[in-house]
């Protein structure tokens, strides 16, 4: 599946017990909890309300998505005061978690301003001089976290591999020479591109100042987990709350699936 859709909705931090939790909400309400969830299926998610966000095609910059394949995403939010946990759930009957030519894996992202302010950066990837923080979860990274091997036969079980130079018998495994040989044939790894496995997290932190400027956020510390549900995905992303975050503060948040 290939979707690039986003929506902007307000998010509100609320104190637990200050109000009755409704099953649905007109905005994303982050309920204060003492213990942050560890998985999208944690029972604590049932204590907060759910907001259904309608998704829009990304038709602002080329290449545009003229038709979206995912219509909406259901969102719940929790906070412990310093972190914000969001759970995104959407319908998707087919699992797409194998990378390859012409393949696009399932994924989702949230964009949150770095600070609470009245006029936050543009919801579509921020704007020049006003970076936005983005946390990006992907199904293939989740599969790696779940134990899928980081090798070609995990993607193509019948792939024929004659020989990798870095596995030559003359090279001691783990030696500097052997590592250098491996880097020689993986230029993206050699220059530190974080797209390269093996993954340490299914979530990647990034910053953007407008479309096309997405870059890794070295200060990012988001974590998360995605799980298949009966009819789609449920993904939890936990990240540092924006600066100035507190009870009854509001900000803008955008989602992409």
């Amino acid at each position: 599946m290939r979707t690039r859709v986003l929506v902007m909705v307000p998010v509100l931090a609320a104190l637990h017990g200050c109000r009755q939790v409704a099953p649905t909400a007109n905005e994303v309400v982050a309920l204060r909890v003492a213990q942050m969830p560890s998985a999208p299926g944690d029972g604590v998610w049932n204590t907060t309300s759910e907001y259904t966000a309608k998704l829009l095609p990304q038709d602002l910059v080329d290449p545009r998505l003229m038709q979206s394949s995912t219509q909406e995403v259901r969102v719940r939010a929790l906070t412990n005061g310093s972190e914000l946990a969001l759970r995104l759930s959407w319908l998707d009957p087919q699992v797409n978690d194998l990378p390859g030519p012409g393949r696009f894996v399932d994924g989702c992202a949230i964009q949150i301003p770095r600070t609470i302010e009245a006029n936050p950066p543009d919801p579509q990837m921020g704007q020049a001089g006003r970076p936005a923080g983005i946390a990006f979860w992907r199904a293939d990274w989740q599969a790696a976290m779940n134990g899928r091997k980081d090798d070609i036969r995990s993607i193509y079980p019948n792939a024929a591999v004659d020989h990798y130079p870095f596995q030559a018998q003359s090279l001691e495994p783990g030696s500097t020479v052997q590592q250098e040989m491996a880097m020689r044939y993986a230029p993206a790894a050699a220059v530190g591109n974080r797209r390269v496995g093996p993954r340490r997290s299914p979530v990647e932190d990034m910053i953007a100042e407008e479309p096309g400027t997405l870059s890794p956020d070295p200060a990012g510390s988001s974590r998360g987990k995605g799980e298949r549900t009966a009819d789609g995905w449920s993904v939890m992303i936990v990240r540092r709350a924006p600066e100035g975050w507190g009870p009854k503060t509001r900000t803008q948040i955008a989602f992409a699936v």
């Binding site: 290449p63 990378p99 012409g102 393949r103 980081d150 797209r195 390269v196 496995g197």
Partner: peptide
């Protein structure tokens, strides 16, 4: 993103699934 793979008419840009680039 593989836009280059799609665009090159000679198909001389390749996607590497292990590096993601």
């Amino acid at each position: 993103y593989q836009e280059c793979v799609k665009a090159c008419p000679y198909k001389k840009v390749f996607f590497n699934p292990m590096t993601g680039t």
